[in-house]
Amino acid sequence: MDCRMGCGACCIAPSISALMKPAGDRCQHLDDAMLCTIFNEPHRPSACAEFKAEMGVCGTSRTEALHLITELESLTCP
């Protein structure tokens, strides 16, 4: 599955410790078009670079992706 352009759910729903970003907060590198401004940069956190879009995480829409990733975050992080 390819990343859904303009989605940004993976930059909002999960916590990203390397960026000190809490779950549910928008990443500071997410622009107004919901695109990562450091996507191809070497300092992009490995957690972000290793994320792969897949149906079980991203669903069929941005709304579903936000729901699924939020649920996964609550199950895996205290």
Rank of each mutant, 00 (worst) to 15 (best):
K21Q: 07
P22V: 06
A23W: 02
A23H: 00
A23M: 02
G24C: 03
G24N: 07
D25T: 07
R26Q: 14
R26W: 13
R26C: 14
R26D: 14
C27G: 10
C27Q: 10
C27N: 12
H29I: 05
H29F: 15
H29C: 11
D31Y: 05
M34T: 01
M34D: 13
M34I: 04
M34N: 04
L35V: 10
C36V: 05
C36R: 11
C36W: 05
C36N: 04
C36Q: 02
T37R: 14
T37D: 08
I38R: 07
F39C: 03
F39N: 04
F39D: 08
E41A: 08
E41T: 03
P42I: 01
P42V: 03
P42A: 11
P42F: 01
P42N: 01
H43Y: 15
R44M: 07
R44E: 06
A47F: 09
C48F: 06
C48P: 05
A49W: 11
A49L: 13
E50F: 06
E50P: 00
F51N: 00
F51Y: 12
K52C: 15
A53H: 14
A53Y: 11
A53N: 09
E54A: 03
E54V: 00
M55L: 14
M55E: 14
M55D: 14
M55G: 06
G56K: 10
G56D: 12
G56S: 10
G56H: 13
V57D: 08
C58W: 02
C58H: 00
G59T: 01
G59I: 08
R62Y: 04
T63P: 00
T63D: 15
T63R: 13
T63E: 15
T63I: 08
T63L: 13
